[in-house]
Amino acid sequence: MLEHFFAKTIRWYLIITGFLTFTVLSVAFWPIQTLSGQYGYSPEMLQGFEYWKVIYQHWGIMVAGVGLQLLISIKHKELRLMAMAFSGLEKACFVYFFVTHVWGEQQEWFWGWKMIFFHDSLVTLYSMVFLMYWLTRDKTKVAAHLA
């Protein structure tokens, strides 16, 4: 059952997730514009941003790299397991950090990141099911994500 599911969905998963993840590259080159436009940061939330700018830019490059890895693995099937594992871990960490920090006193940042949280939650779920499939699959057959 899971073998059929992944055989049918893996390509579209890699295309959609890879593309959406790669778009975070905009934070690396236009951090203030992206944070205020896409993520809804107010001028008050951007106070002192010059101290954090490089961290946001680094985050944008790193996450875009995960998206690029997913996109490359569409053609290079031998990279899919690594891409799935790395993106699943990266997205699960974001979901964990988001959930553990959302209950703080200042929650206005939450609304700007809700779509990333939703996307990363779905990726985490898909990755967990993929891991379950990978560990329990019939090893005598070609793995579904390589078909």
Results as ranks from 00 to 15, higher is better:
Tyr126Cys: 03
Glu78Met: 08
Lys8Cys: 10
Thr17Met: 12
Ser26Met: 11
Phe5Met: 13
His119Thr: 11
Met45Gln: 15
Lys77Gly: 08
Gly18Trp: 07
Trp103Gln: 12
Phe130Cys: 05
Gln47Thr: 12
Met115Gln: 10
Gln57Pro: 03
Met1Asn: 10
Phe5Tyr: 14
Tyr126Ala: 05
Gly60His: 07
Glu105His: 10
Ile16Lys: 03
Ala28Thr: 13
Trp109His: 03
Leu146Val: 00
Ile32Gln: 13
Gly104Ala: 07
Leu25Glu: 01
Trp111Ser: 12
Phe98Met: 06
Ser42Asn: 04
Ala64Asn: 01
Lys77Ala: 14
Val95Asn: 07
Leu70Trp: 04
Leu2Lys: 09
Thr23Leu: 13
Val99Met: 14
Lys53Gly: 03
Thr34Pro: 00
Phe117Met: 11
Gly48His: 10
Gly40Glu: 02
Ala28Val: 06
Phe94Ala: 05
Phe97Lys: 05
Arg137Lys: 14
Cys93Ile: 15
Leu14Trp: 05
Leu125Val: 15
His145Ala: 00
Trp30Ser: 13
Gln47Met: 07
Glu50His: 04
Asp138Gln: 03
His58Trp: 06
His4Ser: 15
Met45His: 05
Met82Ile: 05
Met128Asn: 04
Gln57Gly: 09
Ser73Asn: 08
Ser26Gly: 10
Lys114Gly: 01
Thr9Pro: 00
Ile10Val: 12
Val129Asp: 01
Ser87Val: 11
Met1Pro: 05
Pro43Met: 03
Gly88Asp: 05
Trp52Glu: 14
Met132Ile: 11
Val123Lys: 01
Ala64Ile: 11
Leu70Met: 15
Met115Cys: 02
Ala64Pro: 01
Ile72Ala: 15
Pro43Cys: 07
Lys91Asn: 09
Thr21Ala: 12
Trp103Glu: 08
Thr136Asp: 09
Ala83Glu: 02
Leu125Asp: 04
Phe86Lys: 07
Gly18Cys: 08
Val142Met: 08
Met132Cys: 09
Lys8Ile: 08
Lys77Thr: 12
Leu71Pro: 06
Lys53Gln: 15
Lys53Glu: 15
Val99Ser: 07
Leu25His: 00
Met115Val: 11
Phe22His: 03
Ile10Phe: 02
Gly112Pro: 01
Leu135Gln: 13
Lys141Thr: 01
Ala144Thr: 00
Thr21Glu: 07
Ile116Asp: 15
Phe97Pro: 00
Val24Arg: 14
Glu78Phe: 09
Val129Asn: 02
